[in-house]
Amino acid sequence: MLVLTCHACGVTAEETEFHAGGEAHLKRFGPGSSDEDFEEYLFMRANPKGVHFERWRHANGCGKWFHVARDTMTLEVFGSYSAQAFAPPEELLSRIEDRRPGWRGQD
């Protein structure tokens, strides 16, 4: 059972109020892109054991999308951040670094 905080409305609730939206920060490749890029965008996923950045929607709440950093092995939630961010904020990254020393090197 995950407890997440919606970055848009600030509500902290358990996961049944939210809907998972998969890996975050994927770059879209649409018509005209190469087969490799299109495949990468549509199907290839990091699927890491450990720190994972992902999209969530506050489906039974304010309805907005936001980002979450979470550990796929322990289900520890490191924090959430704006859906409009292209990358996780530095403050969050250093918080993860505190909890998982050296994790960036593994990526």
């Binding site: 996961e15 049944t16 054991k49 992902e54 796929t72 092995m73 322990t74 289900l75």
Partner: peptide
């Protein structure tokens, strides 16, 4: 199945 990636062999309570 859980809606989100994970490697915990238990799954969500709901």
């Amino acid at each position: 199945t859980d809606g989100y990636n994970n490697y915990t062999q238990r799954g969500s309570f709901h």
